[in-house]
Amino acid sequence: MAQGRLATVSWGESEEDGGAVLTTVDSLVNWARKNSLWPLPMGLSCCAIEFMAAATSRFDMARFGAEVARFSPKQADVMIVAGTMTYKMGEAVRRLYDQMAEPKWVIAMGACASTAGMFRTYPVMQGIDHIVPVDFYVPGCPPRPEMLINTLIQLQKKVASERAHKGLRVANLKAEKATA
């Protein structure tokens, strides 16, 4: 992938925007990003216990650079929603997601976060994707730590394949340039 990008000079941006430089930067920035995915642990119920297990030395998420659980959304890259999301908690989940800096990703860990699992009941939202965009759904009730770590590896692959300016306000810069 990286070599491919180096070869395609005008991929995405036009040459005068410095496309060749950007694609190289993509590889470098993505390499840094994918190896330091700081999770925002959105532990809502039982699945959070497996998340904790994944972070401990036995399973050791640190091997993939994801051990720095950040409780401030401003410092986190990937929100791991681990558990049953009620409508009331949904307000907090959405606000925390809004407060995360771009670029950001979301993992729906477990049956509950993905679809509400067994809880077709009055307080539970039927899947967090009603209010936040989800990158990965992890099956299981709860998923084993290996499953979460596998998801992180998949996420690393996804991050590596994205443009480095994902979510940044390139459009605004272009608009400014047009008016100047």
């Binding site: 606000r95 407060q99 077709r120 009055y122 307080p123 939202m125 009603h130």
Partner: peptide, 30 residues
């Protein structure tokens, strides 16, 4: 009041209605 016996198990408001409520509230508070 959901523990009343005649309350529908899955609630009255739909997920779409809740999502609209949650998103608009989050935007207002931000």
């Amino acid at each position: 009041h959901p523990l009343r016996k005649d309350y529908p198990m899955a609630g009255i408001m739909t997920d779409q209605e809740w999502a609209e409520h949650i998103v608009s509230r989050a935007q207002r508070e931000e």
